[in-house]
């Protein structure tokens, strides 16, 4: 028993130190590309930390979104920045930006910045150490009401029943971010190329598998770790893979059908919210007898919308424009 707990402390200590070290390297190593790769590694180590903190739902979301999609987004933006630099007379520009980075390094002032930050860290740490070592929070309340929620996984119950309002707004935020990107009018990248045969073959194998995993996560979310966000991000990752392999949405689907998929999640949520209010209940207060069905419908549309929005975020420009090239 003693040895086991020592081993656990060792693992947790290593994960903690590894996280801080990776974060430090990701933030301060001089090469941007290396920094991004280190950040992806940081996301993967975060996943381990979530598992250690007994939050497998969060670990699933982190590995698909935090490490996977964010990493892909950062790398593709980095490649676009470099492509831009290369277009504009290579060497001079790169040197310029390096000089600019050198110029802004003023170690003396940076040391001064560190002092209030250290004070802040000490204050926050002191605050955490003052907290009671044991607290159950709201888990008892959630467990009491779990039977009425329609699902048996407490995290899904919170996300789609008790705090469904948060999830409604969250999908709205995703949609807003996409509208923001589309309204910037960024020109689509013209890298229309025949995909690498290996990548092409890999995509053909992986896409059905990702579809299957996504459907499984969606279904299992009702009673085990999983759910709409994890399923949506796996499906979105399949979309990202297809985009990387050079596949594009056919023009006939890039217009209205795509837009309907993008807004399906949030509009289903709003319809359900209005219906519950018309039924005399509060906003998004589901009747216990139908809660299971309502949650399932919400999750399916949310999964499709999240996947479409995430893939569109990765594409970075309106697909109907890029089709014309």
């Amino acid at each position: 028993m003693e040895a086991l707990s020592l081993l656990q402390w060792l693992i947790d200590g290593l994960i903690g130190i590894g996280l801080l070290w990776l974060a430090w390297r990701a933030l301060f190593c001089p090469e941007l590309f290396k920094a991004i790769v280190l950040f992806i590694a940081f996301g993967l180590l975060m996943t381990l930390a979530w598992v250690r903190l007994k939050a497998p739902d969060v670990a699933l979301a982190e590995v698909a979104i935090g490490a996977g999609l964010t990493g892909a987004l950062l790398l593709s933006s980095w490649a676009k920045l470099r492509g831009f630099d290369a277009n504009k007379g290579m060497g001079a520009r790169e040197k310029n930006s390096e000089q600019a980075e050198q110029k802004t390094k003023r170690p003396f002032f940076h040391g001064l910045y560190a002092i209030p930050l250290l004070l802040m860290a000490v204050g926050l740490g002191y605050g955490v150490l003052q907290l009671t070592p044991y607290a159950t929070g709201l888990s008892a309340v959630v467990a009491e009401n779990l039977d009425a929620s329609g699902v048996s996984n407490p995290v899904t119950a919170v996300l789609l029943n008790f705090r469904a309002y948060d999830t409604l707004l969250e999908i709205a935020v995703l949609l807003l971010a996409l509208i923001g990107i589309w309204s910037l009018g960024i020109r689509p990248s013209v890298r229309e190329a025949t995909p690498d045969p290996v990548l092409d073959l890999l995509t053909r194998f992986l896409t059905p598998l990702l579809l299957l995993v996504s459907a499984y996560l969606l279904w299992v979310g009702a009673h085990a770790p999983g759910g709409a966000f994890q399923a949506g991000s796996v499906l979105g990752a399949a979309g990202v893979l297809l985009i990387l392999a050079g596949w594009r949405l056919p023009l006939s689907l890039a217009g209205l059908p795509l837009r309907i998929t993008l807004v399906a999640g949030v509009s289903t949520f709003i319809v359900v919210a209005v219906l519950t209010m018309l039924g005399g209940a509060q906003l998004l207060a589901f009747p216990p007898s139908q809660a299971s069905l309502i949650i399932f419908v919400l999750e399916i549309t949310a999964t499709l919308s999240i996947a479409a929005i995430l893939a569109a975020l990765f594409l970075g420009s309106r697909p109907d424009h890029s089709e014309k090239i």
Binding site: L53, K54, A55, D57, V58, A61, T136, G137, L138, S139, V142, P154, V155, A157, V158, L159, F162, R163, D166, T167, E170, G227, F229
Partner: peptide
């Protein structure tokens, strides 16, 4: 553990 913060973190 408390599921409410977990749901908040996923969001």
């Amino acid at each position: 553990p408390d599921p409410v913060p977990a749901a908040m973190v996923i969001t």
